[in-house]
Design a protein around this nucleic acid. Sequence first.
DNA 1: CATGAATGAGTTTTCATTCAT
DNA 2: AATGAATGAAAACTCATTCAT
Lengths: 202, 202, 202, 202
Amino acid sequence: MARTTKKEAILDAALTLFAEKGVDAATTREIAERADTAEGNLYRHFEGKDDLVRTLFETTARRFADVLKAEAGDEDDPRARLEALIQGIFTFGESHPAAFQFLLASHPSHIPKDRDLLLGPYPMRLFVETIVRGVSQGAFRPVDPVLATGWIVAMAQRAVLLARMGLLADDRERIISETVEASRRLLAADPAPPVGEGPHDD
Amino acid sequence: MARTTKKEAILDAALTLFAEKGVDAATTREIAERADTAEGNLYRHFEGKDDLVRTLFETTARRFADVLKAEAGDEDDPRARLEALIQGIFTFGESHPAAFQFLLASHPSHIPKDRDLLLGPYPMRLFVETIVRGVSQGAFRPVDPVLATGWIVAMAQRAVLLARMGLLADDRERIISETVEASRRLLAADPAPPVGEGPHDD
Amino acid sequence: MARTTKKEAILDAALTLFAEKGVDAATTREIAERADTAEGNLYRHFEGKDDLVRTLFETTARRFADVLKAEAGDEDDPRARLEALIQGIFTFGESHPAAFQFLLASHPSHIPKDRDLLLGPYPMRLFVETIVRGVSQGAFRPVDPVLATGWIVAMAQRAVLLARMGLLADDRERIISETVEASRRLLAADPAPPVGEGPHDD
Amino acid sequence: MARTTKKEAILDAALTLFAEKGVDAATTREIAERADTAEGNLYRHFEGKDDLVRTLFETTARRFADVLKAEAGDEDDPRARLEALIQGIFTFGESHPAAFQFLLASHPSHIPKDRDLLLGPYPMRLFVETIVRGVSQGAFRPVDPVLATGWIVAMAQRAVLLARMGLLADDRERIISETVEASRRLLAADPAPPVGEGPHDD
DNA sequence: CATGAATGAGTTTTCATTCAT
DNA sequence: AATGAATGAAAACTCATTCAT
């Protein structure tokens, strides 16, 4: 009683294999086998292996963004929203491990357009926007929002990887709260200095 | 009377190509061509492509560690030492761009032994040791040193990548000092609370 | 609408070439060419060249055994049966010259399991069984049946080879009858000695 | 304190490897390694691999003939001489196992000239000559001497192989005496029939 | 004589893609 | 839609032979 269509089965199989061994090392034959279909059938649903990769990048990135959005909800406060987004990275890493690995470990040469992934309609944008707003509202100290996004996303991703490799002693909850706390410190606005004695930036 | 041996030429060519297009996409033919040698000669110096990858991992990781050590010198203060190490990541990213890219972007399935790269005799260990010492001396707040190493290294690496992709407005110096400052905030020990009024942790 | 499948064509081509030039000297390219197919197709039907060799050993040995069985029919008398089996070696050598050559001239290092070919479910067993029976019935003189099988099979095979090389003056029929006669003399039971005057076997 | 020259070391190494894995499967690199010399040096002593094969065929065939001659001595009686020659096959098989295997198992395509090996100045000729003489003297029954040589040599060779494979229960001495006895029966002249009662051949 | 790096043509094998059914 | 045999270009790898030292 398969609820999934053949096309979905192919996408699933490909995603898993791409994550496991990398895009190049995964063969169309393996993908077809794991999707329990004929190799030729793959070309009825996709233009070729490249198309499969492209499609997967888009859907997994969108799925990632969806998880982040769901986690952030309509939270308005930049600090709370940012923390929810970070939590979302962990959630996604756990609920979609293959997608997480695929998005992270694919060689740049396979990524359709680097800028898009980072700044396009996809995941990173949510961070950048939140940080931009937080800085302008004074909730965060002034930093380049793209750089700060890079820092925070990289931190969370690395935390997921280290946890997955069994290199961290703490449990899941603790790792997340530690990483959230770290991001808080990273962006915390400095306490307002006594009037008339502010720092000189020049 | 070339100063470089053929073996070195092969390693160089392979490193560049592996970094550019990924290990799988780089062919032995390309490598040989770029090294200006016959394809077969590659197999006199290495057991095969895999051996080439393994060798490169080891030498580039070691080279990375050497740059970090050189940058840190015999600095003893954990704070200063950590900052020097971070500076080292940028230095290495600039002086050995192909090695940097290769170490970062190779698919895990090509990495000989993940644990070794992170905790073995190689780069990451320098960070972990420094943080352990800093925490025990009270210079840093108490954190899991492996997790903190992950954060900081990931931050710096991502900063190098973003800069390389032209996504950052600031100049090199500024990006480095920002990233160093970020790591400082990440690990800064909290000010000692007034006696008798400390926070309750339970 | 060829009656033969591509797989059979490949096996045929390989057998011929293996017999002609030896397993090592026959290339997959030649095999594919002679089978009128693409080289890659060879690897859909077989795991590799080794698999091809293995498969051919099994099928040709079985085919050899089949010819022997057909020739021996349900003949019960050990003498008659043995002579039919010897006749079978010649028949096989003529009807399947490539298979005959392949079985004979392949280097031991290519033979999957020497014992099997000689004593396993295959050709030689038929001889051994017949000789065992003949000895126990007193039709043959007492000899090690394995050794006797070796003698007889080797004799017949060598006769086929010498004939094929044009070194024998006699015609086919004569060579066969001579060889059969030779085997008869080889195994003939000694005439019962007059009672009381027999040789002492100590 | 090597008594052997480099050239001899190369011949030895090649013979062993050719016997073990076949001419094609043995590489010049292996041969050089086993001879403890440089690969290139092989080409100082021989024109190439083919020359090595040719040389080995000649020397091993000659060595085989020498063993046979030594065994036969100046024995004049055809029966005794033939039995000594058969004994010689076993002697050679034991004293020069690699040479024995090399002469036997090399693919025909590597054998310089089949006729020469069988009938030329080499081993087989000794058998043919002895049998021709034995037949003309009435010591042996009338048979094609080439065919009879083939039978007897094949029998002895096969006996050596079976013994080497551990398929024979009897000990060395017994196997030899059995094989000699077999050849005796093979060629024994029929008892002269009473005058006027000769056999009818039709 | 000796060495072993270098060569390049050749080998086995892989794999994305096509196509007849 | 589905199949899986077939294709062929390209991949990794081998190896007899050459050559500078």
